[in-house]
Amino acid sequence: MGKKEKVVVGMSGGVDSSVAAWLLKEQGYEVIGVTMQIWQDEEEEILEENGGCCGLSAVEDARRVAQKLEIPHYVMNFKADFKRTVMDYFVAEYLAGRTPNPCIACNRYVKWEALLKRSLEIGADYIATGHYARIKQLENGRFSLTRSVTAAKDQTYALYNLTQEQLSHTLMPVGAYSKEEIRTIAEQIGLSVADKPDSQEICFVPDQDYAGFIERTTGEPSREGNFVQADGTILGRHKGIIHYTIGQRRGLGLPMGRRVVVTEIRPETNEVVIGEQEDVWTDSLIADRLNWMSIPELEGEREAAAKIRYNHAGTPCMIQKTGEDQVQVRFKEPVRAVTPGQAVVFYDGDYVLGGGTIIK
């Protein structure tokens, strides 16, 4: 390899990023471990308790791993980036009646955009993470994500928004392994995090009370409003639109005598629309804020498979360009609970074609 290529590994203190650092060192790279400081001061106590990829305990775990691997380790402050591009976005989307995906925003704007910029400034050739995905350069010269070897852990959905520049400077060594294999490697090389549980849910809302977090952040209580049928008939009162998402069945508190679901959120009238189970099935959606990955642009119409949420298996569809930055997606069979604010990600076999944000 001549002069060793330098790679900055984003080390969260978890087993995946720890083994990623080891794998890259074994492959001959000069490895530098970096833990991203993204927690906000006022929540340090809570985050330390809960751990996760934002927790203070992550720094200590990552430092111990770096020591064991004999690589340098630094903590870099990305608090301002994280607050602006992830937390503020999360709050604004809920207030607008949409359901955000903060992990996708964090990946694009913090873990990649901010970390890559800083890493290149210090002379690194690449950044690397412990994500379960693989990167390949295609015959057309473009870089694309391809699914990891293990479908159960595949994380390409949350990474669809990465740019060509970002992908060309990224390594994802963990994508070639299953989770069990990664834990086995960690055990064999004596890493203290071998059995550390995966971080779950949204790291900056450790109690998972999204509405409470939004109220604390804005300093304003949720504004109550009406539960209505699609035609406007009032059914009862809701606690505030930030408490609800499309397809929600639990916690509605409506004495309807049958199971009903949230079918729409109307921020302009502060109404939550209630309907029947069949009302949340649809065979089409519209998306914008597109990011194409394995192709430079969508020309006309194209067949693909689309995932409308992280744990959705994917459904065959036709994608058609309907505007400068807009597509219509027609599914071959109906899908449940298409949710504005969430991502739709398109696949051509194992390759990520691209994706966008669901409007309706």
Rank of each mutant, 00 (worst) to 15 (best):
K4L: 13
E5M: 14
G10L: 07
M11R: 02
S17L: 03
S18T: 03
L24P: 11
E26S: 10
Q27K: 15
E30H: 14
T35F: 07
M36H: 01
W39V: 07
Q40G: 04
D41P: 14
E42W: 12
V59Q: 12
V65F: 09
Q67H: 15
I71L: 06
I71F: 08
N77T: 00
F78H: 14
K79F: 10
F82V: 03
V86D: 00
D88M: 12
R98E: 08
A105Y: 13
A114G: 07
A114V: 05
R118K: 14
R118M: 12
S119C: 10
S119I: 04
I122Y: 11
D125W: 01
A128Q: 06
Y132M: 05
K136A: 12
L145S: 06
R147L: 10
V149Q: 00
Q166M: 11
Q166R: 01
L167Q: 06
A176P: 01
S192H: 14
S199Q: 07
F204M: 03
V205C: 09
D207I: 01
I214Y: 03
P221M: 08
Q229W: 12
I242F: 01
M256T: 12
V260F: 08
V262W: 01
T269S: 14
E271A: 08
T282V: 14
P296W: 12
K307A: 11
C317D: 09
Q320F: 00
Q328L: 12
Q328A: 13
P334Y: 09
P334M: 08
P334C: 09
P334S: 07
F346P: 04
D350I: 11
V352G: 09
G355F: 10
